[in-house]
């Protein structure tokens, strides 16, 4: 990692901490007013769920790199041991994606936007495709005819 990148990381961390401390200070300065004695607390208001959902894409084996496509668009890269995190509007319909990795069969899968979710995609090496459901035994060149055909009649 370059020194510049390390420096940028520390600056970002410091900024996050400053904002957090600020928020805490603000909360301390403006505490919620105490409830009057004998008055029941109002029922908790059901906060609406966040507008976006978070979808975390990972692959197995996790030490490989893969690209994730959504139609024409490349959503991003799953790096070795680093998932791809995508945000989508909640309830905006499913995300039909394609996961591509060198040496492995392309995988078409789907992520949903009902809630935060994880999509762990198992990759299969090209030469292991006979382990998958739907693999068809190759037909012999003669189309399955017996090797000792009957003679003419």
């Amino acid at each position: 990692m370059s020194r510049a990148r390390v420096k940028r990381g520390w600056i970002a961390l410091a900024a996050v901490m400053a904002v957090s401390l600020g928020a805490l200070a603000l909360h301390a300065a403006n505490p919620a007013p105490p409830l009057p004695v004998g008055v029941a607390a109002p029922p908790p208001v059901n906060a609406p769920p966040p507008a976006n959902v978070k979808i975390v894409f990972t692959i197995n084996p996790s030490n490989k790199k893969a690209m994730v496509f959504w139609g024409k668009k490349r959503l991003g890269i799953i790096a070795p041991h680093a998932p791809l995190v995508v945000q989508r509007p909640r309830d905006s319909g499913p995300l039909d994606v394609v996961v591509k990795s060198d040496g492995y069969l392309t995988v078409q899968t789907r992520a949903y936007t009902f809630a935060d979710s994880k999509v762990a995609v198992k990759l299969t090496q090209v030469d292991q495709k006979n382990t998958l459901l739907g693999y068809r035994e190759e037909l012999p060149p003669d189309g399955g005819a017996p090797s000792n055909p009957d003679g003419g009649i």
């Binding site: 069969l105 899968t109 299969t124 495709k129 459901l133 739907g134």
Partner: peptide, 16 residues
């Protein structure tokens, strides 16, 4: 989830 092979692509059905 279930994967299956069709024309050299793996399809993965995910049912929530």
């Amino acid at each position: 989830t279930r994967q299956f092979l069709w024309k050299n692509t793996v399809y993965e059905m995910r049912i929530p």
